[in-house]
Design a binder for these strands. Structure first.
Lengths: 241, 241
DNA sequence: ACCTGAACACCGTTCAAGT
DNA sequence: ACCTGAACACCGTTCAAGT
């Protein structure tokens, strides 16, 4: 029944793990998380499922590899920019991830799932390393590097996870204005007794700029690290317990 | 073939959405994310799939409801504690979530997926409201409430998402020492040219305390918010761009 | 060593039929 | 209004067989 839109090119190159991962990324980009199935993959690669299983262990590993490929490209800073000061580079790396998720919305869910499933998998470690190098350059003492970097990475992963969906719902790109309207409307219908705060800030959700807000959060964490762990920041005290 | 271990009690109460959600939470607690299937659910509830679909729209909605039930209980502070100062209450709410994920490890993945799939769903909004009320009590000016609260919530969601898996891998509880050993070993085998930072902090991962580190991140964000948005904090300056 | 493709076990979901 | 349960479409994965 299906019109059998045969891929024009028969297989020219041999199958390889890399070719499979590339195809997986393309399918995810085209149709979202639901778009990656072994059947779609076999059709696109003009092969059978057994051939794919020769190169990758299972679907989970394939998703990991797809996410890793995209993240690796994202955290590699464009050499266009000069080295720059550490705080600026941290913002640049974070924005690289932010933009990668804008281009590959499935990456948000995938990052989140990998974070919770295998917390120190290749993707998480890659981001940790990239941020950590710059935190060290900031002058944070050795003993506090792990804590400071973890805090930054956790904030970044939490924030990009949510912001991804600000431009899409269930894999469909939606107008940002419409999306925020829907959120505002939903919030206005919340019980005023249970949700006084949310209702009070309903206007701010419409006006806010995703990138600005994302960077503001980075600055909170950086300021906290500076104040609590850098000699120059000792003037600042944390809020009393 | 299956030994048909009949649930001793035939159905006594009528089916209801709440009873279904409770059963879902129990299945998730017992067998992890893979443990919740409509077949397991029908068996436990002694009914057919159609009966369940009468009360919930689909599996996604059921997972949402299960997560919401657990989170609602977690962010409701025990009234044992006196109201207390805002920063302390923020830490208490955050730790409530932290502990809930310890008890229900599947919640980490579920929170992450909901965050990326429907960023302002009921669970996210519940956490946002709970934290937001306390950020306001902190004295943050109205115009900055949304940004400050979002940053805190993003950090919390990123951090609890990862810390969940520190005690479990693929749904199995594992010894924390063994787990950290495995991470350390894996890190020591990373390429020293590509991962100088990660290799340098490998010892800190073994010594660190999850809760302490989680709270340290909260303090970074709180200190940043205080420094950048509270009149009393103006002495602190953010790191230069 | 690498690939084929039929087959298997399992899943979420539907729906005509009952009460 | 609420429940039953067979059936459907689809999925990840396996494996004996080919080259």
């Amino acid at each position: 029944m299906a019109t059998r839109t045969r891929r024009s090119q028969r297989r020219t190159e041999a199958l390889s793990r890399q070719r499979i991962v590339e195809a997986a990324v393309q399918l995810l980009d085209a149709a979202g998380e639901g778009g990656l199935t072994f059947r779609a993959l076999t059709e696109r690669l003009a092969t059978g499922p057994g051939a794919i299983y020769w190169h990758v262990a299972n679907k989970s590993e394939l998703l990991d590899a797809a996410a890793d490929a995209v993240v690796a490209a994202a955290v590699a800073l464009k050499p266009a920019e000069p080295p720059g000061a550490p705080p600026g580079e941290i913002r640049a790396v974070a924005l690289g991830l932010f933009d990668a998720i804008d281009e590959h919305p499935w990456l948000a869910t995938q990052l989140a799932m990998q974070l919770s499933r295998s917390p120190w998998g290749s993707v998480t470690t890659r981001i940790f390393e990239s941020i950590g190098q710059r935190v060290r350059a900031l002058g944070v003492p050795d003993g506090n590097l792990f804590t400071a970097t973890s805090a930054l990475v956790h904030y970044i992963l939490g924030a990009v996870g949510q912001n991804a969906a600000n431009t899409r719902v269930d894999g469909l790109h939606v107008d940002r204005g419409e999306f925020l309207d829907a959120v505002s409307t939903a919030w206005e219908e919340l019980d005023p007794d249970d949700y006084p705060f949310t209702r009070a800030v309903v206007d701010q959700v419409r006006e806010h700029d995703d990138r600005e807000q994302f960077l503001a959060g980075i600055d909170f964490v950086l300021t906290g690290i500076t104040a609590l762990h850098l000699p120059s920041g000792q003037a600042c005290t944390p809020p009393a317990a």
